[in-house]
Amino acid sequence: MIALLLAASSAMVVSLVGTRYLLPWLRARGVGQPIRLDGPQGHITKAGTPTMGGAAIVAAAAVGYVVSHLRAETVITRSGIVLMAAVCGAGAVGLADDWIKVSRERNLGLNKRAKLFGLIAVGAGFAAACAWWVDIDTAIGFTRLDGNSLRIPASVWVLWAVVVVLGTSNAVNLTDGLDGLAAGSASLAFAAFVVVGYWAFRHPNSYDVKHPLDLAIVAAAMAGACAGFLWWNSPPARIFMGDTGSLAIGTAMAGLAMLLHVDLLLPVIGGLYVIETASVIVQVGSFQLFGRRVLRMAPMHHHLELGGWPETTVLIRLWIVNSLLVALALGVYYADYLSLGLIELPADSL
Rank of each mutant, 00 (worst) to 15 (best):
D263P: 06
S286T: 06
A248H: 12
I281T: 13
L256E: 05
P236V: 09
S286D: 04
E276M: 05
W231G: 08
G242I: 03
V284I: 11
G270K: 10
L272H: 12
A278Y: 13
V284Q: 04
P235G: 14
A254E: 05
L260Q: 01
S234T: 07
T277H: 01
S234D: 09
A227E: 02
G271A: 15
W231D: 06
M258V: 10
R238P: 05
Y273K: 09
I275A: 12
G242W: 01
T244A: 08
C226A: 14
P267E: 13
L266C: 13
Y273M: 06
I239V: 07
S286M: 03
A252T: 03
G270P: 14
V262H: 05
V262A: 11
I239C: 03
P267I: 09
A254M: 03
G255F: 08
V262K: 13
A257H: 03
I269V: 09
V268W: 14
L266A: 15
A252H: 04
L256G: 09
A252L: 11
A254Y: 09
S246Y: 08
T244I: 02
Q283R: 10
G245W: 08
H261R: 10
H261M: 12
I249M: 15
A252F: 01
G270S: 10
G228E: 01
P236D: 06
A248P: 07
S279T: 12
T277C: 01
V282I: 15
A252S: 11
D243S: 07
G242L: 06
A254H: 02
D243C: 05
M253D: 12
L230A: 15
M253A: 15
M241L: 01
A248C: 07
G228A: 00
A257R: 02
T277Q: 01
V284R: 00
I269R: 07
S279A: 11
G245P: 13
V262D: 05
S246D: 09
I249G: 03
V280M: 04
I275S: 10
G271H: 15
L247R: 02
L230K: 08
T251Y: 00
Y273Q: 04
T244G: 00
V262R: 09
N233E: 10
N233D: 11
A257Q: 02
M241K: 00
A237E: 04
L247M: 12
L266Q: 13
G250D: 10
S246F: 06
I275Q: 15
L265Y: 03
I281W: 15
D243K: 01
W231C: 05
I281N: 02
L256T: 09
I281Q: 10
L260N: 03
W232P: 01
F240V: 00
A252E: 00
W231M: 04
P235Y: 15
G228S: 02
D263I: 09
G271S: 14
A227V: 08
L247Q: 09
G285I: 04
A278E: 13
H261I: 12
